[in-house]
């Protein structure tokens, strides 16, 4: 990706600062573009050596459901990208247990290893951040 190369260059200037970035996902995939374009920001942020975490709550937990098949819609299935995050050293994926439960979902239905946390724990995690970007 050309953008990654460019980001790596910019990273040289900003690398002395490490901030805690949290990307908060509260929207389902496909109905709108936010989940997909949000993920693109996450991938770029990895090039800046920041402390990056992802939070999935409310309808955002639907982004991680296994078995997404988008052929019938003729749109890109971007769900495999979540599995690629580890390769970018993005390893903190927090999923809110209450949101899963409210949607009849279990952790084993998710396509990537995550840390399931309570709403209260999620609130504490949010409190620790320097920059919170929600899509």
């Amino acid at each position: 990706m050309a953008q990654v190369a460019e980001a790596l260059e910019q990273e040289q200037d900003a690398q002395s600062v490490v901030k805690k970035f949290m990307f908060v996902n509260r929207k389902a995939p496909y109905g709108t573009i936010y989940a997909l374009e949000g993920l693109e920001v996450v991938l770029i942020s990895a090039a800046f050596d920041q402390d990056v975490s992802l939070a999935f709550l409310d309808d955002g937990v639907y982004q991680l459901v296994k078995g997404q098949q988008t052929k019938g819609l003729e749109v890109k299935n971007f769900s495999p990208t979540y599995r690629a995050l580890e390769g970018y050293d993005v390893e903190k994926l927090y999923v809110e247990g209450e949101s899963l439960e409210a949607r009849g979902l279990r952790e084993d239905q998710l396509l990537v290893p995550v840390q399931v946390v309570s709403a209260q724990e999620m609130a504490q995690l949010m409190e620790q951040q320097d920059v919170i970007i929600g899509f």
Partner: peptide, 16 residues
């Protein structure tokens, strides 16, 4: 420009 400019703004600004 690229998305890096967004991340950079998050790093460099006092408030985002």
């Amino acid at each position: 420009s690229g998305l890096g400019q967004l991340v950079e703004a998050g790093i460099e600004s006092d408030r985002f």
